[in-house]
């Protein structure tokens, strides 16, 4: 299939153009609706939505740390996946040079599986 390999900067232009198109569309719709749908302001409508009950206390008191733990694990496993990508890319090509590449990644994954089991046992993953 002879097709012209597009240069990275042309791809960036295409992506930026598409992003601008979507953004303009969103802003256009918001603008039209803000212009056409006149807002009749009254205090009841603009207050915090609490199923009709008056809001009590500040909206943002502290939350359980569970969300924070999940974010840390997400970050660490995301980095792990980042290392898997270049490995997966050249895995098939490097198979001729013997299984060294397979062994390298298995050590990398083994250490992280130890970490995963540690988290599992320490209860980082389960949700009360």
């Amino acid at each position: 299939m002879p097709y012209k390999k597009t240069m990275p900067s042309e791809n960036v232009l295409a992506v930026i153009l598409m992003g601008v198109f979507a953004a303009l569309l969103g802003i256009l719709l918001l603008g039209v609706s803000a212009f056409l749908g006149r807002v009749k302001r009254n205090p009841e409508k603009l207050s915090v939505y609490e199923c009709g009950v008056d809001p009590t206390g500040s909206a943002r008191e502290r939350f359980s740390l569970k969300f924070y733990l999940i974010a840390i694990f997400f970050l660490v496993f995301d980095i792990e996946i980042i290392f898997l990508y270049p490995w997966a890319l050249i895995f098939r090509k490097n198979l001729e040079r013997g299984g060294l590449i397979l062994f390298e990644m298995m050590c990398f994954l083994a250490i992280l599986v130890v970490g995963y089991l540690y988290i599992w046992k320490k209860g980082g993953l389960d949700w009360k």
């Binding site: 740390l65 924070y68 733990l69 840390i72 694990f73 970050l75 660490v76 980095i79 792990e80 290392f83 050590c107 990398f108 250490i111 992280l112 130890v114 970490g115 540690y118 988290i119 320490k122 209860g123 980082g124």
Partner: peptide, 18 residues
């Protein structure tokens, strides 16, 4: 070595946050 670094980050995060 980065796998050890990630292991330490995981364990550190759990110990500190829990």
């Amino acid at each position: 070595l980065t796998s050890f670094l990630l292991l330490v980050a995981m364990v550190g995060g759990v110990v500190l946050a829990k």
